[in-house]
Design a protein around this nucleic acid. Sequence first.
DNA 1: CCGGTTCTGCGACCTGGTCGCATCGGTATC
DNA 2: GATACCGATGCGACCAGGTCGCAGAACCGG
Lengths: 141, 141
Amino acid sequence: MGHRVDDLLGTLRHQGERVTPARRAVIEALVAADGHLGAEDLVDRAQRSVPSVHRATIYRTLDTLERLGVVVHVHLGHGRAAYHLSDDVHQHLVCEVCGDVTEAPPRLFDAVARRLLQSDGFAMRPYHFAVVGECARCQDP
Amino acid sequence: MGHRVDDLLGTLRHQGERVTPARRAVIEALVAADGHLGAEDLVDRAQRSVPSVHRATIYRTLDTLERLGVVVHVHLGHGRAAYHLSDDVHQHLVCEVCGDVTEAPPRLFDAVARRLLQSDGFAMRPYHFAVVGECARCQDP
DNA sequence: CCGGTTCTGCGACCTGGTCGCATCGGTATC
DNA sequence: GATACCGATGCGACCAGGTCGCAGAACCGG
């Protein structure tokens, strides 16, 4: 939806941030993807609509959007980071064999988080890293 | 303990692997540390006893040791990997603010792992990634 | 102590991300 | 509209953490 994009650009403007073609391209890619997107995917897609945008600009744009609370990034294992709109937080499961990424049941870590807070005073940030393991298809034969 | 080291070197020999100064140095560093050690720490320490060992050799040695089941590596967030002897597996908690790494209660993820296996057939590998969050000291004042 | 195979040192390379700098161009103001 | 300010951009170099291919060294069974 185009006005989803406009809304997000509006939040930028509202916080005194500039609306530029590069930022528009990143946000459009994010909205169109409707799910998480790797940083390099985002580079590709944004460059499809605005060929001149530089990799570094996209990383900087993502930092800005994250600072403003528009997107969040998660780590899907190893090096790769993925971004999605922040109203769509959820826990990811990633299969180490086939690389497939799925969504975990919500509130999966509630009990664990509560327990860690009580026992160690440690405030777990569950969504920030994916849960790694092996998916059903890759375990069977 | 020196014969801890000898035991491990023995396992190598037994599997048809060669015992070399580089491998000895890595294993000694690991045994002496008695806990997890970052890959680059390991490079430093191994080079302290055998200055000529190359970074690449240490990474290869760690791969070999992992293949033989002697060590395991875990990811402590971002890029850094840490290694420890495989009889000392445990879950790590890492504070994103101060970087401090502590040990989590054992079996912390048992219930979650069971649930994921039932609902999605997904076999979680809990120890492989640390739990990130914020430690008690960094939250308070 | 010899030979064959495995390890090693070396340096180049790779991925994923960051930085400094000069320039460009949104936006507020007039 | 036109202007000017300052933040955003493009660019290429750089960084961390790790991997690879190769030629030569060295382990270890005989």
